[in-house]
Simulated assay, not measured.
Amino acid sequence: MPELRVGDRQWSVAPAANLLDALNDAGLSVPYSCRAGSCHTCMVRCVSGDPLDAAPDALEADKRAQGWRLSCQCRVTSDLTVEIFDPLRDGLPATVVGADWLSASVLRLRLNPERPLRYRAGQHLVLWTESGLARPYSLASVPGNDPFLEFHIDCQRPGAFVDVARRLQPGNPVRLGELQGGALHYDPDWQDRPLWLLAAGTGLAPLWGVLHEALRQGHQGQIRLMHLAREPQEHYLAGPLGELALQHPNLHVESIELADFSAVLSGLRVTSRQTIALVCGSPVSVEAFSKRLFIAGLPRSQLLADVFVEKG
């Protein structure tokens, strides 16, 4: 059977065992969120040996060259030595510069990284607490415009990371993990095309950044933003979105409550096959939006989606 080594520990694992499971079963507590190769919370570095990787393109080439792998996507087929991501050693230090509530359940967290971070609207980062808890969150800030990194954290449900986030104060340290692309972005080639931004809950965070990027680049086509929330008070950016709509005649904002979601979906019509749709939120909401758009005639290649997996 293959031998797996981490530091001074070495043990045998079943052939083709999942690397993430093998590490956690041994009590090493590697964090994870999606188990689909998109959140990048479970990164480990291969020191010797190479696992069977089901998602070799999920990491940038330079990261792979350094030995980094997504443990959830790897199987141990031969002897392997790995290092677990250490936020103190491998993470980028950052300081909390703002922690305020946009609604009763949405915390706006603003961070100042130790060095400038190059990113684009729609990307996400893994946040690490001092106690070693990790969770991926989409960036809501606008690159080149905001002097901080902004995140919208849904605190409605209790969870290990959320419980720590609720207590964060300006001056507290946080570590930043891997910056990831995700599916959401703005392409200047879309400038004259209808742009639909469909969000549920804090799935609005990355689309808030994408919207600002589209407006900054002078998007000429119609922009339709729909935000789905459980209750009216959970439309946590209703005020700022309304102000943007007054400033930009091509922006139309719709706030939808869960009770009306089915009726709104059934009425969706895609009037132009040039439409680009970006969808973000829970798996159920993303599937519902996507299915309706396909039925309405939107080509699959023109829908970009990012799914938030609920894990506190």
Rank of each mutant, 00 (worst) to 15 (best):
T202A: 03
A104L: 12
I223F: 00
V106L: 12
T271R: 14
R269C: 09
T81W: 03
N18K: 12
L133G: 10
H219T: 03
H252W: 03
V76M: 08
Q180S: 15
L304R: 13
I276W: 13
L107K: 05
S141I: 01
E150P: 11
R89D: 07
R108P: 10
R110W: 11
V76Y: 10
P188R: 01
V82Y: 06
L109T: 13
D100T: 09
L268G: 04
G267I: 13
S301Q: 07
L28Q: 11
A200R: 04
A55H: 07
A259I: 02
G242E: 02
Q169F: 06
S285H: 07
L258Q: 12
D90H: 14
E213S: 10
G281Q: 01
L70M: 12
R135F: 05
R166T: 15
Q247H: 04
A14E: 15
T275C: 14
A55W: 01
A94Q: 05
E150Y: 12
G144A: 07
A26G: 05
L111M: 05
G297V: 14
S262F: 04
A134I: 02
D8F: 03
Q123Y: 01
R5W: 05
L52N: 10
W68Y: 11
G27A: 03
L179E: 01
L244W: 05
F151C: 03
E114P: 02
A205M: 00
R193K: 06
V279A: 00
H124S: 03
W68D: 15
V97Y: 14
D8T: 06
C46Y: 07
V97D: 13
D50F: 10
Y236H: 09
R75W: 06
W196M: 15
E130S: 09
Q123A: 08
S12M: 05
D146W: 10
L125I: 03
E310Q: 11
C155A: 12
S131I: 04
E60F: 01
Q123R: 02
E310K: 04
Q180D: 12
D189L: 14
R115P: 05
L246F: 03
L278F: 00
D90W: 08
V76C: 11
G182M: 00
S141M: 09
V30N: 09
P194F: 04
H212V: 02
L303V: 13
L225V: 05
G239I: 13
L168A: 01
S12A: 13
S290P: 06
Y119G: 06
F151K: 09
N172S: 11
R300V: 02
E234R: 10
H248E: 13
V97P: 15
V47N: 10
Q217K: 07
F148A: 04
Q123I: 06
P232Y: 00
P31G: 02
G37T: 00
L111Q: 01
E3L: 11
V279E: 00
G209S: 14
Q73F: 01
G37L: 02
G203D: 00
L92T: 13
R216C: 08
D146V: 03
W68H: 06
R292H: 10
V270K: 02
C39H: 00
V286C: 03
T81F: 01
L197M: 12
L70C: 03
L244Q: 09
K291N: 10
V253E: 04
G91Y: 09
